[in-house]
Structure formats: C-alpha cells, structure tokens
Amino acid sequence: MSEAALPVLIEPTAKPNERLRAALTAPMFVIGATILTIWIACAILGPSLVPYNPYADDLMNTLAPPSAAHWFGTDQIGRDIFSRVVVGARSILSVAPLATLLGTLVGTTLGLITGYFGGIIDTAISRLIEVLLALPLIIVALLALVALGPSNTTVIIVIGLIFAPLIARTVRAAVLTERELDYVAAAQLRGESSLHIMFVEILPNVMGPILVETTVRLGYAIFTVASLSFLGFGIQPPSADWGLAISENYELITGGYWWTVTFDAVAIASLVVAVNLIADGIQGAIE
C-alpha cells in the first residue's frame, strides 16, 4: 500500500467560506457525496427497502440470471442478490468508519506526542512506526485476526491500529511546523502544560490535514474490510457482506455466472470512489 505524500501547507486564508463553498459545490464532490448518501440510506433503511429476505434460500431457483423478479439474479443457494447488495452496505459502513475513527484518534495522539516533544521520544516512536509501516498491511491484519479470531470488533481494532502509524506520521509532520510558531512559545511561557499545548493550542491548527487524512483512510479502510472478508477473515457468513459475496462466488465467473460477483464488486468500487471524491473536495477546500 503506497503512501501518497500529503501537502500540509496551511496558510491563513483571506476568504475561507468562499473557497469552502466552491469546493463543496464542485461536481466531483457532489457526485461523491450523492453516492455515499445513497449507500448510507441503504445501510440504515436496507432491510425495509429490499424486495426479498436477503438470507432466505430458494433451492429450486439457484444461480438464476438477472430478471424482472430478481434484478441482480440469485446466488448459489437461490438468495436474491439485489437484496443482499443493498443490505450489505450496513456491515461495511459500520466497520470501516469505526476503524478509521479509532485509527485517527490513536494516530493523532501519537503524532502530537512525537511532533511536539521531539528528541528521544520522537526517535523511539518514529522508528517503531517505520517498522510497522514496513510490513504489508494485509499481512499484519491477517496475522492479528488469526491470533484474535475473526469478528467485527477485532476487524475494527486491527484496521484502526494499522492505520494509526500512517496518520501519526502525517500529524507529526504538521506539528513539526506548528511547534516553531510563536503561539506555541507564548503558551509555553504562560506555563501551560504540554498536554494543554498539544491538544488545545496545536490540535485545532492541524485539523485540516487530519480531516483529509481521515477521509483518505476511510477509502482504504473500506477496501481493507472488503479484502479481509474476501480472504475469509472479516465479516462472517451468512452476512450479506460484499467482500464475502465476491469470495464465495468468484469461482463462478468462468462458468458464465457473472452476476454473482459483478454487482458486489461495483458496490465496493462505487463506495471507495465516492469517499475519495469527497476527500479530494475537502482537501481542495482547506488548501
């Protein structure tokens, strides 16, 4: 997983509201937000929207192609794929944001500490973070899940803790710049505690990069959750999870049963793209 270097130049802007409005009404942002809203609606209202019980099998009607009765066709045990895709939004949209939130909280704290204190603390924690970043994300996640046993909670914790070092690095870079500014020196002269300076003085000034980083991470988290489900270590059957559905059915593609995989794959792609469009918009707004 390659790391995109994020520009963290924060300049006091003359007309922030105008720029914000421009960024938030940009077509790409609107498209992203619309797609995300639709999926959030599916996640919340899904079970009451769908035409079939997404878990009910129908053994006399397995692998039926898309039709008026089953818009997205049926899977290997005759479940309605449309209903499953709609309901499947819920698991991914609860796990991925919580994992991202956890990663942001831990990462921001680490970033503030390393950036503000510097010296031996910075060196020690930064080297540790680099060690963690050197390991492929999915491998670390798999090892942790094998050790802890797969469940939604462990998926959230594992992804959150894996993302924390990435976020910490970004926050640290931003804090390094802030630390040298006069308002920090002033606070130190006033005798404020380090904790106060970090979280009350510096944090509000680095919220921009944190917000961007969080949104970008959310996109990665969605993809990671889906990947873990695909590998059988994430969300468990008979859940209508998208990654799981692809894992269960990808072998069928060569047999011509494309509908068992395509709609779930499109769902994952659309959600990741939507979140990234939103991240671009936010980044445009605060720069």
């Binding site: 878990y55 009910a56 099998d57 053994l59 045990i77 797969p150 059988g232 468990q236 059957p237 008979p238």
Partner: peptide, 20 residues
Amino acid sequence: AVLIQNAAAEIGLKINLKIE
C-alpha cells in the same frame, strides 16, 4: 451451513455460524 441455519430457524433455533 447457511441452509442448515435457515432450516433450523423454521423451528425457532438460532444457529450462529463460525466458518474458518
């Protein structure tokens, strides 16, 4: 496993799956 889960639900048994 899912078929057994669904079938058992017919008589009110709630089967949770652990697939490893």
